[in-house]
């Protein structure tokens, strides 16, 4: 079993090591998230009731944008220096290697967002219970963003204007995750229970975990042809 997952672990370790040596990229994405979320009250006004209402949506949209920021760099550097081609040719499972890269992307760009979200939620005056649900929804949801985003990153690899194109392709596909993620808090506040939303988010995560790495490798092979 451990032998089967070796390529996955190696890919995760390699990408984490690369991220650790380019710390600014990680920190920039995180600050981008913090700044975008903090701009919203400045645009809307400091009314606490209103802010409490928009907080889940604001944090979720911030998380979407922060994920997009890192996605452009998911395959591009490896594509440029030929590493990606070597991965595709290697006898190890290409899908597992790619799944490892996606996992590393989430650890680097998604997890910090999840960890800092409660702090930003406090700025929006969210009660403790909502903070917990919001963080849980982001914990389940941000991997979905990385997984779906990887498909888009693979499709736009090495294409003219890939950054803008990536957002055009991926953002509509993020809608279900956004609805269930941000909706969990509101459903709880409305007394409807948040479990349903989180279950659906979990189902989406499972479906994406199964299919997204595979579709990504198909798209990457098209790009590498």
């Amino acid at each position: 079993m451990s032998g089967f997952l070796t390529p996955f672990r190696q890919a995760v370790r390699r990408d984490l090591l690369l991220a650790a040596r380019h710390k600014t990229e990680v920190i920039t994405a995180l600050f981008f998230f913090v700044i975008v979320v903090n701009l919203l009250p400045l645009g809307i006004g400091p009314d606490a009731d209103l802010l409490r209402k928009i907080a889940p949506g604001a944090l979720w949209i911030g998380a979407l944008l922060a994920t997009l920021l890192g996605l452009q760099r998911l395959f591009a550097p490896d594509h440029q220096d030929g590493t990606l081609e070597q991965m595709a040719l290697s006898p190890q499972s290409f899908t597992l290697l790619i799944a490892g890269k996606i996992m590393a992307h989430w650890l680097v760009s998604g997890l910090p967002v999840v960890l800092i979200a409660p702090l930003l939620g406090v700025q929006f005056d969210l009660p403790a219970r909502s903070l917990g649900i919001l963080t849980l929804s982001l914990l389940l949801g941000t991997p979905i963003l990385s997984l779906i985003g990887a498909v888009g990153a693979a499709l736009t690899l090495g294409v003219r204007g890939s950054g803008v194109l990536l957002s055009l392709l991926i953002l509509p596909l993020y809608i279900p995750a956004l609805i269930f993620g941000a909706g969990a808090v509101e459903a709880d506040l409305a007394g409807l229970g948040f479990e349903g939303h989180l279950s659906l988010l979990g189902a989406l995560l499972l479906a994406c975990t199964v299919f997204a790495p595979w579709v990504t490798t198909v798209a990457l092979r098209v790009a590498l042809e």
């Binding site: 736009t156 294409v159 194109l165 055009l168 392709l169 509509p172």
Partner: peptide, 16 residues
């Protein structure tokens, strides 16, 4: 959203 999906498809094909 369906309209956006169409636009994304056309944009992707136009960019390659």
């Amino acid at each position: 959203i369906l309209f956006f999906l169409y636009l994304g498809f056309i944009a992707l094909q136009a960019a390659i």
